[in-house]
Design a protein around this nucleic acid. Structure first.
Lengths: 131, 131
DNA sequence: CGGGATCCTACTCGATACTG
DNA sequence: CAGTATCGAGTAGGATCCCG
């Protein structure tokens, strides 16, 4: 870890063939990963396969609509898998795909940064707003 | 790296005193870090102190308004510093603060994940949409 | 139980025009 | 040069109702 600016630039040029801009790519993925609920869903699915209602219970504040939308988006991107069991009442289970699993490390790193610094950030905000 | 779910939970409990939810905290920081331009600004400032116009030139597509807003937000949170030189024409320089620098490692990790997987993600999207 | 369909509000972003 | 002010379009997200 602790990559340099050059590392990022070279990774960018590798994947973009030395043309265009890395910005859109990073933002595209980031928009999926960093929206209001995705990261929370992914972190929760770290526990293993879970049902829709279990996810909803583990993620306070998420509406049914947003949980559904988030799960669909993550499924579309291949980060989670959706399994419908032909039973009554219906049972639908979600779990991380292998690719979804590879997102955990960077996602957790960012989450830990957030947890470690949010206090300092709030202090800075208060100081800034006090002017 | 490659932390476990328990590591995240314990980090959460440490900072939240075993109450509340880590979600809002992570989301609060993430909303700042993962908005449309912040990460790009931070990555660009990795090069060192830059002027407003230099930032705008290095970040294709950013409007003057959004760059200003992004810089203000990052400054408020203590991630970058803003220096106004009393000259004419005015010269304003931005640079990462020490705390801003600590964000680089996790941010780059996520950016590299995005670059490494965006191709696979687009394949999955195409496959999903083809149904 | 899981989730589709609607409606509605608030906010975000971009374009444009103006300023010290 | 480095902003601020204003406006309009688009969208994210919540509430609600309904269905297999």
């Amino acid at each position: 870890m602790s990559q340099s600016a050059e590392d990022v630039r070279s990774a960018y040029e590798d994947s973009c063939h030395a043309r265009g801009d890395v910005g859109p790519i990073v933002r595209d993925v980031l928009d999926r990963v960093a929206d209001k609920w995705s990261l929370l869903v992914i972190a929760t699915l770290q526990q293993g396969r879970l049902r829709f209602s279990q996810l909803q219970a583990h993620i306070p504040g998420v509406s049914q609509r947003m949980l559904t939308r988030t799960l669909r988006h993550l499924e579309r991107d291949g980060l989670i898998s959706r399994t419908v069991h032909a039973e009554v009442p219906p049972r639908v289970e979600y779990e991380l795909t292998p690719m979804g699993g590879t997102l955990l490390a960077p996602a957790i790193a960012l989450a830990e940064w957030a947890i470690a610094h949010h206090e300092q950030i709030e202090e800075r905000r208060a100081a800034y707003d006090a002017r």
